[in-house]
């Protein structure tokens, strides 16, 4: 009888909801109870430094190109020591969707995401973070990588002294 199975179905549903009434709620009372997000949580973005203390960001613009909401902008410049770095670097967190594509795109591991998600403010302009707000004094998640050691051009070390490099060619040498 279809009607009986229908009624049974109704009662099954009622029984399930009845059981759920006595379960412990999953709610976390946010401001009082806080959950520590996992280290790979995607929230506030930082710019890290390499193990030698130099800025990792070379302002290559890949993060701003990858950003789907165009919240990253920067101006590269050349430092006196020949490093490429950001003259200014701006992330508009009011626009950021924390997708993590910038961190994924970053070839020098400079831009990283932290679990700090509590960055709300009253004034929306306070969410426009400049380089001084973003730059931290640490390596973040990857503590050993220094882009310039592997770049293959002499910036932080004399030419030909980087990892996996031969000394510069003597073009005036006569040996074959």
């Amino acid at each position: 009888m279809k009607i009986l199975s229908d009624i049974a179905a109704l009662l099954t549903g009622m029984w399930i909801t009845w059981k759920h009434m006595f379960r412990r709620p999953v709610t976390i009372q946010y401001p009082e109870e806080k959950r520590q997000p996992y280290p790979r949580y995607r929230a506030r973005i930082v710019l890290t430094r390499d193990p030698d203390g130099g800025e990792r960001c070379v302002a290559c613009q890949l993060c701003s190109a990858a950003c789907p909401v165009d919240c990253i902008s920067m101006q590269p410049t050349e430092d006196t020591d020949g490093r490429r770095s950001a003259e200014w670097f701006r992330i508009n967190f009011a626009r950021c969707i924390f997708c993590g594509l910038c961190a994924e795109a970053c070839p020098t591991l400079a831009i990283q995401m932290t679990p700090d998600f509590e960055i709300c403010t009253r004034d929306i302009m306070d969410l426009v973070y400049e380089k001084e707000d973003l730059l931290i004094d640490g390596c973040g998640k990857s503590s050993h990588y220094n882009f310039y050691r592997h770049a293959g051009i002499g910036v932080t070390q004399p030419r030909g002294n980087g990892a996996e490099e031969l000394p510069p060619v003597d073009v005036r040498g006569l040996l074959p």
Partner: peptide
């Protein structure tokens, strides 16, 4: 797995940057 050959760059004036590597 070998090493990369490198070169020394030259100053080619105020307009052109040289990176022989």
């Amino acid at each position: 797995s070998g090493k990369k050959r490198t070169h020394v760059n030259q100053y080619l004036g105020p307009y052109i940057e040289h990176e022989m590597n």
